[in-house]
């Protein structure tokens, strides 16, 4: 009988010799790729403001829609997943990463049919982001409301 499923000295040795992620490199790549995506977003925003005279919520909404559109398109072409492999978090955090997380399962699971494959699996990565995004914004809204009662 060997009921104990743990060997601390072995685990210690494993973590000692396992290769570590190169943090400096990962951070640098994430920084410049993520930053570039945000710069492009900002450029789109300025362009919409100056040439089309958009402002406020309509301006930010339109900018997001354009970025999501570009992200999805690049994902369909197989370009965005390459950017993702290179940049890691730098491609996930901007809104184009959200587009990628919806489009990639939709493309991958379409072989299992449009309803049970594409549609059902579409949000399997983005689902948690939406859930916690909604909960987070509700929480922040409540705090804002309560703080506003006193000040």
């Amino acid at each position: 009988m060997n009921a104990k499923n743990s060997n601390p000295s072995y685990l210690e040795y494993v973590s000692k010799i396992s290769p570590k992620t190169n943090e400096k490199r990962s951070l640098f790549r994430a920084f410049w790729v993520g930053g570039t995506i945000c710069l492009i977003g900002q450029a789109i925003r300025f362009a919409l403001e100056f040439f089309f005279g958009l402002y406020g919520d309509i301006l930010s909404g339109t900018t997001s829609i354009i970025l999501v559109g570009i992200g999805s398109f690049l994902n369909g072409l197989g370009v965005y997943d390459r950017i993702g492999k290179y940049a890691g978090g730098g491609s996930i955090v901007p809104i184009t990463g959200f587009a990628n997380s919806v489009v990639s399962p939709a493309m991958d699971f379409k072989t299992e049919g449009f309803i049970y494959g594409l549609a059902a699996k579409m949000f399997f990565i983005a689902g948690p982001i939406i859930v916690f995004g909604v909960i987070g914004s509700v929480a922040v809204g409540l705090i804002y409301y309560v703080v506003g009662l006193f000040f």
Partner: peptide
């Protein structure tokens, strides 16, 4: 597809 993430997601693989 079965064990990890969709192929098109382009997730980063750890060095181990």
């Amino acid at each position: 597809r079965q064990y990890r993430y969709p192929l098109e997601l382009g997730s980063v693989r750890p060095p181990q």
